[in-house]
Computed example of a mutant assay.
Amino acid sequence: MDPPSRLRRGHQPARTRGRRHRWLRTGVREGSGQPRRDTRLRDLGAFLSGDTAHAYDAPRTLSRCAEGTPDITSAHDGTVELTGHYRAECDMDRQLRSAFRDFTTGLAEPGRRLDRALESWGTGGNIGDSSLPELGGRSLVLIEGQRWRDDFGSRRAYAYDPVTGRADRLTPCTHGGSWASANPSATLLIDPDGHPALLVSLFVPREGAAPGESGQLVYWREL
């Protein structure tokens, strides 16, 4: 069984806390040249020390090339549900939903409803990384979409409502006026002064960045 260090940090490993103080972590393994999902269950002590209790290497079923960037959405009664994206026909990234039970069996299916919501904005390139924050008591999906194939400067961030099936484009403002954004993520947390705050991060591709603004971008707002 591979140690936790085999999870490739560049592919946004996710974690969540389950019942009986157990922890789940999912990420992308490296070594084969093609990413695949890897999910692990640990108690808190094992999680902090890096000892794996159970592991399940989910086989690729939607693409022979790649399935990855998993994000855990639910863990209950031995079943773990997650989202991610896959290389559709080994050509372009599209969304997936997956579930596995008891770390032995799993099933993945295309997330076509989310794909269609972004395609309605003219997204003809990749539909990639997403995160699932809960803001104001509502579950949302923050996701990136690429308007034109192979054009990193056309990457944009969207907010998707899973109840209505509608996606709205986000227009983050920077000092220099960068226009591209990718890998959106938002987290509600308690700041060092004990106040609730919202932390938002984006990646600004150099092809769509103002001078000096390419790279990771972080927004912080006290609520």
Rank of each mutant, 00 (worst) to 15 (best):
T26N: 00
T26Y: 01
G27M: 01
V28H: 00
G31M: 08
G33C: 06
G33S: 10
G33N: 09
R36T: 09
D38R: 04
D38A: 11
D38T: 07
D38Y: 10
T39H: 08
R40Q: 12
R42C: 07
D43Y: 00
A46H: 14
A46P: 02
F47S: 07
F47E: 10
G50T: 10
G50W: 07
G50F: 04
D51L: 07
A53Y: 08
A53R: 10
Y56I: 12
Y56R: 05
D57P: 04
D57C: 05
D57N: 13
D57Q: 14
A58M: 10
A58F: 01
P59Y: 07
P59V: 06
R60S: 10
T61D: 10
T61A: 11
T61S: 14
T61P: 01
L62K: 02
L62E: 09
A66W: 07
E67W: 03
T69F: 14
I72G: 05
T73D: 09
T73S: 11
H76W: 10
H76P: 04
D77H: 14
G78F: 11
G78C: 13
G78D: 14
T79I: 14
T79H: 05
T79K: 08
V80A: 03
E81Q: 07
E81C: 12
E81G: 12
L82E: 07
T83V: 14
H85K: 09
Y86A: 00
A88Y: 03
M92G: 06
D93C: 01
R94E: 00
Q95C: 00
Q95F: 02
F100V: 06
R101G: 04
D102K: 03
D102Y: 02
F103L: 06
F103D: 08
T104N: 13
L107T: 15
E109K: 12
G111M: 02
R112N: 13
R113Q: 12
L114D: 01
D115H: 01
D115K: 00
R116I: 08
A117S: 15
W121I: 07
G124I: 00
G124D: 15
G125V: 12
N126Y: 01
I127L: 12
I127K: 00
G128S: 15
D129L: 02
S130E: 07
S130H: 10
S131H: 05
P133E: 12
L135E: 13
L135M: 13
R138G: 11
S139Q: 15
L140Y: 15
V141L: 11
L142V: 10
I143L: 13
G145A: 11
G145F: 02
G145N: 07
Q146N: 13
Q146F: 09
Q146T: 05
R149Q: 13
F152R: 08
R155V: 09
